[in-house]
């Protein structure tokens, strides 16, 4: 079994430059599509460049897209983010749809997220508004005035009536019943 996820770098959520507080800024700076003009493994990439690349560019004016042909090498997508991260995706034998999907993912990311495991799925600067819970929240303030050692508080807390107590009560009730009966007679 692979335990590689155990050795991933654990990290908390980070957002570059308070992104989204005022407005959203796309964090992808530039993308380089590297491919071979005649190798079969680049076929999808070539088709993508011919058919879908212009639409992608029009959709995302904030991203600079470069196309770099090179001979006899596998196609890759290289992305550079505003925070300086670079990430590349091996696009060998990818179809044009797959390439578009990966490009969209790279565009929507804020940095290279590979090899990072998020420790918490929420980030807050204000962990508590009403004050953190303590053992004394929602307790009677009378407890503050108790002097210790206090025999009442140290014993076990039993709220239920015991069997003997219940029997006693039954007995009392019975006695009352007898009295009423005698009165009736």
């Amino acid at each position: 079994m692979s335990n590689s996820h155990l050795f991933l770098k654990p990290a908390f959520i980070t957002t570059p430059g308070q992104n989204g507080v005022g407005r959203y800024v796309c964090q992808l700076q530039r993308v380089v599509l590297k491919f071979c003009k005649n190798n079969g493994s680049s076929r999808g990439m070539r088709e993508f460049i011919e058919t879908k690349l212009m639409d992608f560019v029009k959709e995302s004016p904030e991203v600079a897209v470069y196309v770099k042909p090179r001979r006899h090498r596998t196609p890759i997508i290289k992305a550079e983010y505003l925070n300086g991260d670079t990430q590349w995706v091996n696009a060998r034998n990818f179809t044009e749809d797959e390439i578009l999907k990966w490009l969209k993912l790279l565009k929507s990311q804020s940095s290279d997220r590979t090899g990072i495991r998020l420790r918490k799925l929420i980030h807050t600067d204000f962990p508590s508004v009403q004050g953190p819970w303590t053992p004394y929240t929602f307790r009677d303030p009378q407890l503050n005035k108790v002097e210790f050692p206090c025999p009442e508080l140290t014993g076990p807390f039993i709220n239920e009536t015991s069997a003997t107590e219940e029997l006693l009560e039954l007995y009392k009730r019975q006695k009352l019943g007898n009295v009423e009966e005698s009165r009736a007679e």
Partner: peptide, 15 residues
């Protein structure tokens, strides 16, 4: 709320 990022989690294994 604003959507600021869409990514993928780390690779998880199912053994």
């Amino acid at each position: 709320a604003t959507v600021i990022e869409k990514t993928l989690s780390h690779t998880k294994t199912h053994f």
